[in-house]
């Protein structure tokens, strides 16, 4: 289990994280979302021991990540990983074999061949996506107990994303790995993470299980004779609302029958039920929190 307690970090006068508390259970895939500059990479660097926490602490089953024994079970894939002008896929795996002797070279070769990446060509000649594929392949070859991925899947083509997601599920299932993956887009992560946290205004402001959230949420599109306002839906537990002219799209929380009964009472011209995606639920949740309501 990864435990983060009272973690705060600033860069000079610029506060990045404040009093972050988080527990990530074993065999979980946690999505870490936030806008660019929110502090996702900083949090991952603090979790991996690259940065020393200014206050608070991080522990892996009670062990300090600043100790090398703890980091043996940990692999951080930064958003812009290190390689020099001569680094090739071949030299990359040789280097990582030094630090992670248990690395499975066959897995690495299999992925590299699968994506038809050149084995002996310098990484500097690769496209950004190809480089990312090579490094994600490395992460799967190392197959650590704790895998920290910083925007690892962002910018990958849909086929590559699908393949990596399948491998990630296999890694969690077979090796019992715990994964933290960051992204600026919830859409990138919503189909394979067990839990999400979002960094906003230096804090982790929302977390929870995806399925639990989406199961209690219902999304409707309604058209009215008159232009509606937010007050029109006051009787409902609204998670998010978008009004465009006489058309309103609402995401509500509660029991489906009861919600539809209340919506019909508003006498809409049209009432359509739509699918809820997690991003809407998540953003709605954050909106409510920021307004001071309950999650």
């Amino acid at each position: 289990m990864i435990k983060i307690e009272g973690l705060s970090h600033s860069f000079g006068d610029n506060k990045v994280l404040e009093d972050v508390e988080l527990e990530i259970g074993d065999k979980k895939v946690l999505g870490l979302v936030g806008i660019n500059g929110a502090g996702k990479s900083t949090l991952l660097r603090l979790i991996s021991g690259v940065y020393h926490p200014q206050t608070g602490k991080v522990s892996y089953d009670g062990n300090d990540p600043l100790k090398d024994e703890t980091r043996r079970n940990l692999f951080l894939l930064p958003d812009d990983p290190y390689f020099n002008g001569q680094t090739t896929c071949k030299s990359l795996i040789e280097m990582y074999k030094v630090f992670y002797p248990e690395v499975d070279e066959e897995v690495f070769k299999e992925i590299i061949n699968d994506f038809k990446l050149p084995w002996k060509k310098p990484l500097r000649t690769f496209s950004k996506g190809m480089r990312r594929q090579a490094f994600v392949a490395l992460a799967f070859a190392v197959a650590p107990k704790y895998l920290l991925l910083d925007e690892a899947f962002d910018g990958l083509d849909p086929l590559a994303r699908k393949k990596f997601k399948d491998r990630l599920s296999k890694l969690v299932k077979e090796k019992g790995s715990t994964v933290i993956i960051s992204s600026h887009s919830l859409k990138e992560l919503e189909d394979f993470c067990d839990e999400f946290v979002m960094i906003d205004e230096h804090h982790l402001i929302s977390s929870g299980k995806v399925l639990e959230k989406t199961m209690d949420l219902f999304k409707y599109q309604l058209a009215f004779k008159e232009i509606p306002t937010e007050e029109t839906f006051a009787a409902l537990s609204v998670k998010s609302i978008k009004i465009t002219g006489r058309v309103a799209t609402v995401v509500c929380e509660g029991e489906a029958g009861e919600i539809e009964e209340k919506l019909n009472a508003l006498d809409p011209l049209i009432l359509d039920k739509l699918d809820v995606n997690f991003e809407e639920a998540f953003i709605g949740d954050i909106d409510r929190k920021l307004r001071g309501g309950e999650s």
């Binding site: 021991g49 690259v50 090398d68 980091r71 951080l76 930064p78 812009d80 920290l148």
Partner: peptide
């Protein structure tokens, strides 16, 4: 990022 996350 890489150097200081290595187990050394």
């Amino acid at each position: 990022d890489s150097w200081f996350s290595f187990p050394l």
